[in-house]
Structure formats: C-alpha cells, structure tokens
Amino acid sequence: MDKFRVLVVDDEEDFLETIVKRLRDRGLETHGVLSGEKALQFLEGQDTDVVVLDVRMPGMDGIETLKEIKKRKPGIEVIMLTGHASVESGIQGMQLGAFDYVMKPVPLDELLDKMRQAYERKVIQEEQL
C-alpha cells in the first residue's frame, strides 16, 4: 500500500505530538492540529486522505467537525477516537459517515490497520466515480 496523507485532530497536546511523531516514523505524511476549527482550515489548503478525529474537544466537537468535513470533502475518510465510550455518539458518528469509531487507548498497529483500510476505501470510491 502506498503512502497516504493523514491529519490528526486532538486538543490534548501531548497525545497529539506523540501520535504524529509515531505515524511519521512509520512513513506516513502526518500533520496534527489542536481543534476542529483548525482541522477545517487545514483541509481547505492541503489534500488529505484520512483524518483521525478526537470526539471530545472544546469548541467545535468531533461530531460537529465530522459533519463539516463530510459536507465539504466527502471523499476524506474519518476515524473517530474517543476517550469516553458513548453508544449514542458512536451511532451518530457512523450515521454521519465516519469510517470507524475507536476507543482510546488504541494500539498503534491496530490504528494503522484501520487507517490503511480507510485509505483503501477512499481509493476504491475514487475509482468508482
């Protein structure tokens, strides 16, 4: 599988730094931003394949951000990350077109696997058009 471009969105700075670094170590072109608003700004300017999105953030929360991303760039696949398991918000996220809804902490390899599948889905979808 070729390399793909990733954006991680999380308001926890430490978590963000670590995960961005580790994904870069695995050879992925990875960026990180600290809020939903910044994520939308980033996506306007930069082509991205997969977004990893924290559900609970101050300001624009994950669900709200997901809605906007899917509205503006429906092709981008979004993996929701949550520290607090909530079925309702899981259903909401999946209904809004998220690729997956994953509980923290998630082993990096597992997350990578999901990201690869999300990317594959994006490619298939582009081919279908």
């Binding site: 259903i91 999946m94 209904q95 998220a98 889905r121």
Partner: peptide
Amino acid sequence: DAPLLRQVILN
C-alpha cells in the same frame, strides 16, 4: 461495507 455494518450492529 464495514462502516455500514458498524452502524447496523451499533443500532
């Protein structure tokens, strides 16, 4: 389709 199936199972 995994995301669609997730939606069903969660429901």
